[in-house]
Amino acid sequence: MERFLLDVAHLLAGGLVLTSFMLLYQTRMSSLLAVFALQAVVLTLSVAWQAHVQNAPHLYITAGIALVLKAIIIPYALSRVVRSLGIHRSIETVGGIGPTMLAGMGCVALSMVVMLKATATANPLAREDLAFALSVVLLGLLMMVTRRNAVSQIVGFMSIENGLILAAAGAKGMPLVVEISVAFSVLVAFIVIGVFLFRIRERFDSVELQALDDFRGERR
């Protein structure tokens, strides 16, 4: 039974890493948001499973927030932003998909090496969760670096956040997990509202060098 609990947790956490890889190779905005919603569902399942295994009912709240906010409301709101602001439907990437995927594999290998070594004495359930969580965080960072447009940067940031929620849920008995997930949700809501209100369209559309020069305050 112990073994089974561990295997399912392992499977779900691994699924989260897999969806992070899927985010890396999306080239269309709509599919990017769909994959992100899928990742949020996997996160929900994973957190709910941790709640079940650890017998920690408050984690179900975190799982619920992930499901409602990140799997439904935010992808829907962002796709409306994409439509209403007329943002390009395809995503510009820095470097190709191939090198990015290779770098992503490097990130996962790195986090396995670092975390499994550092947590040799910890509880195996938490240990693997943590290693996978770090992979998701690093892949999210990689996505933020390789994407130029703001919506995909937001998606990258939210996938980092998914990794953190996974880590916090895996750390047995960690207090404030619910509070932290609420704080993060407020943060994300801020971004989405900010995008709506400010309509920084240029930011979403192009990265002209001229705009960047202005931005650095080097205008003449």
Partner: peptide
């Protein structure tokens, strides 16, 4: 936000060490 996210990961690790 990225900074704050990395700091949270560090905070979780400190908790893991203390637990």
């Amino acid at each position: 936000s990225v900074g704050i996210a990395l700091a949270l990961f560090g905070t979780i690790l400190v908790y893991m060490a203390a637990q």
